[in-house]
């Protein structure tokens, strides 16, 4: 107790959590999904992860050095940005594309805003949206799982959008395939089971709360059930679980209050469903979270935390 009580201006009570411990916990939670992603797509996936992480950390180091700021590369946040970006790319996407996305994410979306805690948009997702607009041909081709060669195959959501298949059976898959990761898609999004494992670990460690992931996933389930009639398929495909558990919950770019977080989650879910059902792209999680990121300052402004001791 004594070493936790510091006589100074608030905050007086300092918890055990620090930025590095939180960031590295999230990175550990991402580990199972990463290992399975590499197992599914082969060593190309490993090199992509390495390229993204190294570029992200190097960019952060160079900028902080240049601005004569304390170097915080070891706090795990640049590592996480690189890792999440790689998770959101097809495994066989060229390394320089991944590296460029990492550079954009750290230099423009994080450091240009003043560094950790100041960014408005999730850097990894903004990096992905940038790559999608810059070199779309590398981000729209996906690979067959467990072939370990550049054999392309459309994602389940892609097949659905192009009208080439209408159900899981049409695609020659089962729900278990979708759940365990036997499908094409981005590197880190394929194994829902591993992602949920990481999510449960984060919930247990109290790094995240249920509000954003549950409201996000539930909204997508309800919406797609009404308009497409297969909620389970929509939960288990694409980047929904990865986005809802690991990216929409980013502290910096999500609302502070619980009510705000539910509003944020529902907004993400609505936008994702609209893009999936009526939009031009097969998957909308990345864009949905980015648009919702832009509304966070307004949500925080209108849904204020109750002041201590005022009202009930």
């Amino acid at each position: 107790m004594a070493d936790k009580y510091i006589v100074s201006s608030s905050p007086h009570f300092v918890g055990k959590e620090s930025i590095p411990s939180i960031m590295w916990t999230v990175n550990i939670a991402l580990l199972p999904a990463g290992i399975i992603g590499i197992a599914v797509f082969g060593k190309a996936g490993f090199w992509l992860v390495a390229a993204c992480i190294l570029t992200a950390m190097a960019t952060e180091y160079v900028i902080q050095k240049g601005r004569r700021q304390p170097i915080t590369v070891s706090d795990g946040s640049a590592f996480m940005t690189g890792l999440l970006l790689a998770f959101n790319l097809p495994a066989y996407c060229p390394l320089w594309v991944g590296a460029f996305g990492s550079f954009f994410a750290i230099a423009i979306c994080k450091q240009a805003f003043g560094g950790l805690g100041r960014n408005i948009f999730n850097p990894a997702l903004a990096g992905r949206a940038f790559l999608m607009a810059a070199w779309p041909k590398y981000l729209t081709v996906f690979n067959k799982p467990f072939v370990y060669d550049a054999v392309t195959q459309a994602t389940p959501l892609g097949l659905l959008k192009e009208g080439k298949a209408h159900s899981v059976v049409d695609m020659g898959l089962t729900y278990w395939d979708l759940f365990l990761g036997n499908k094409s898609g981005c590197l880190g999004e394929v194994c829902i089971f591993a992602l949920l494992l990481g999510g449960i670990y984060l919930l247990y460690k109290k790094i995240i709360t249920w509000h954003i992931p549950i409201s996000f996933i539930l909204t997508v389930a309800v919406f797609t059930q009404i308009f497409k009639g297969d909620y389970l398929f929509n939960i288990l495909s694409g980047g929904l679980v990865l986005g809802a558990v690991f990216m929409a919950t980013d502290y910096v770019t999500s609302p502070i209050t619980k009510i705000g977080q539910v509003i944020f989650g529902v907004l993400c879910g609505l936008l994702t469903s609209v893009i999936r059902i009526w939009g031009g792209y097969p998957e909308g999680v990345c864009y949905a979270i980015l648009i919702a990121n832009a509304t966070v300052p307004l949500i925080d402004r209108f849904v204020k935390p109750r002041r201590y001791g005022v009202g009930i």
């Binding site: 903004a126 949206a129 940038f130 999608m132 936008l271 609209v274 893009i275 939009g279 864009y287 980015l290």
Partner: peptide, 8 residues
């Protein structure tokens, strides 16, 4: 970039 997700 984010709004472009709603294209089409």
């Amino acid at each position: 970039l984010a709004f472009m997700g709603l294209l089409g």
